[in-house]
Simulated scan of single mutants.
Amino acid sequence: MEQMGYIDNSYAYDTVCRARDKERPKAHEFAENIIKKQIILHGDRFFADDPCVFGGIGLFHRIPVTFIGMRKSKEISENIKFNFGMPNPEGYRKAIRLMEQAEKFSRPVITFIDTPGAYPGIGAEERGQGEAIASCIACMSRLTVPTIAVFTGEGGSGGALAFAVANKVIMMENSIYSVLSPEGFATILWKDASRAKEAASIMKLTAKELFDFGVADDIVKEDDWSSEEAKKRNFLRLDRTIQYHLLKLMDMSKENVLKSKKEKFFSMGEINGVRN
């Protein structure tokens, strides 16, 4: 795997801006370039189909896998349809349905994460948003099939964590993962959202910082996304990184797959064997 250079905290908010860049490929574009012969599945079998959450069955290097992710768009009309990448409860229940199906048929699960967080609207709360997120976290934590979470852009709060309780967490170089947005952090801590840049510098939300704390297992280097050739290189790097980790996980027994996931989460926050 490629070694990443140090990312200075002073540039943390620049990373946030790159993760949010509307021209950056969205999670479904990553999935389309990685997972072939996709069959998209819809609905949670309880209430509705959440268009923000996509998922289904496909082939990754001829390996049948289940894939799940969040949709955003570069167009405002589609972004409204996809709720700006913020899933509703039915989206998380759709994910649970797909994860349970993957467990039943022994298919690895690959998730593609790009969300500012779960949708906090009144309707979502009335339909059990908190319970849906918690149930999705619990479901993914119990899976005995190999699980890989890929952060392609933003990773906000429990909305992202619900798709990230995985054996391996892979982050694109300019993706982020945090308990909430820098703006929300600054508002809570200092009552001043304009201090978001300062907040980002202390939140430990960059890929390099999360790798150091054992939250991320690998970082995929990014070239500028402005050219088609650069996009191909970036997608190929991610493809190779997923393949490397998935093949190792597939060599493990179900018991060891689950054990390795537990060990990963219990050791988070340790640097050189010492808990920070």
Rank of each mutant, 00 (worst) to 15 (best):
F67K: 05
I122D: 08
R45F: 12
S181L: 05
S141Q: 14
L205K: 03
M1E: 13
I76R: 11
K72A: 05
R240V: 02
G121E: 11
F211P: 00
A160Y: 02
G159M: 05
S106L: 10
D114G: 04
E255W: 00
I80S: 08
T144R: 14
K261R: 14
R107P: 00
T115Y: 06
F235N: 02
K221P: 00
T115F: 08
E131G: 11
L247A: 01
M172E: 07
E198N: 10
N234Q: 09
G214W: 01
K208E: 15
I76M: 13
S157E: 11
C52F: 02
G43M: 01
G69Y: 06
I35G: 03
V109F: 01
E222G: 11
I148G: 08
D217S: 09
S260E: 13
N272H: 13
F84S: 09
C52V: 14
P89I: 01
C52R: 03
G155W: 06
H61R: 11
R18M: 14
K204N: 15
F67D: 07
F54K: 06
V145G: 07
E78T: 01
A164R: 07
N272M: 12
G273M: 06
A200S: 11
T115L: 05
F112A: 12
K72T: 15
C136D: 10
A199N: 09
M250R: 07
I202E: 09
N174V: 01
E209L: 08
P182V: 12
V179R: 06
L236S: 15
V220Y: 05
A193T: 03
D192S: 04
S226A: 15
I39P: 00
T206L: 08
V150Y: 03
E2D: 14
D212N: 13
T115V: 03
H245Y: 13
G56S: 05
N174H: 15
S175L: 10
G5V: 14
I68E: 02
S73H: 04
I271K: 15
S253E: 12
E263L: 12
G117C: 03
Y11C: 06
L41S: 03
Y11Q: 15
K36L: 10
H42S: 06
A207N: 05
G91Y: 08
H61A: 09
D251A: 15
C136S: 15
A216I: 06
Y11L: 14
M172C: 13
F67Y: 15
A124L: 01
S175K: 03
K259Y: 13
G159D: 08
P64D: 08
R195S: 09
M203Q: 08
M250F: 00
G55N: 04
H61K: 13
A216V: 11
E229S: 15
Y177E: 01
A199D: 08
E100N: 11
F235T: 08
K254G: 14
I39Q: 12
K197S: 15
C136F: 08
K26F: 09
G55P: 04
I68N: 02
N234A: 13
A48D: 07
W225N: 03
E126N: 05
